[in-house]
Amino acid sequence: MLEAILPAVACVAGIGLLCAVVLVVAAKLMSVRENALEKKLRECLPGVNCGACGYTGCDGYAKALADKTEKKTNLCIPGADAVSEQISEILGVTFQNTVEQVAAVHCCGDCEHAVQKADYSGVQTCSGAKMLYGGQQACTYGCLGKGDCAAICPYDAIYMDKGIAHIYTPKCVGCGLCVKTCPNQIITLIPDVKREVIACSNKEKGAVVRKKCTNGCIACHKCEKECPTGAITVEENLARIDYDKCIDCGKCAQVCPVGCILSEDRYGRHRFAEPQR
């Protein structure tokens, strides 16, 4: 009986022991010395790998900070002030304030106001729709409505309503993934304290716009004249806001005859996570 069990036990135990010894030796000999500072910095970062900081991802930014090739601690937009503060503390430098941003959609031509020129039934993505004569809407500048931005948003902050994208700002951290995804480039990042947004991207003349979308900017210059600080300029038949000059008075939104300047609260997720700094 024992003669049958003993060799089996010895065999398995021996092989197991051998494997264990080899692994221990290998782990000792070939251990990788991880940069402790880099690891600590990496843990502060949110890990979305959005690339808003300009590096290939959170790992890249942490490495650059640890190697001292990057001095700015406020580059992480999704992490905002909280992360900037932590990084500053670890590196022992002074705190740098982050400009919190949220995404804004520059189109309000929903299916009630924009004219459809075709019924598109191909691949159900914006980039697909864009390839076929610029999408199913008559206006080729506006939202394509297939939700590429909503699909890529890691925070579920974008929803589609009546054929156009909307940002639910309390969830938005301003990582800018949607900005890069939109084939018509109608999404931009704006400071989240500002309320006014020009919700149109069409650069055609007023009369042409009018035929394609009743919500489009007709370049009437009313907002430009009304603006007390000269923050709005109309270039290429489209109004633009210079957010450095904008004082958030909301007068432009009141005078706009087509209602394509939207004025509403856009506080991003940071405001809700940590109230007024």
Binding site: A8, C11, V12, I15, G16, C19, A20, V22, L23, A26, A27, M30, S31, V32
Partner: peptide, 23 residues
């Protein structure tokens, strides 16, 4: 004992490969 020994060896091997690759 095939199965149990094979599992043991394969698991240890993969771990070893991982350590070497990481380095």
């Amino acid at each position: 004992l095939q199965t149990i020994v094979f599992i043991l060896i394969i698991a240890a091997l993969v771990q070893l490969v991982e350590i070497i690759l990481k380095r």
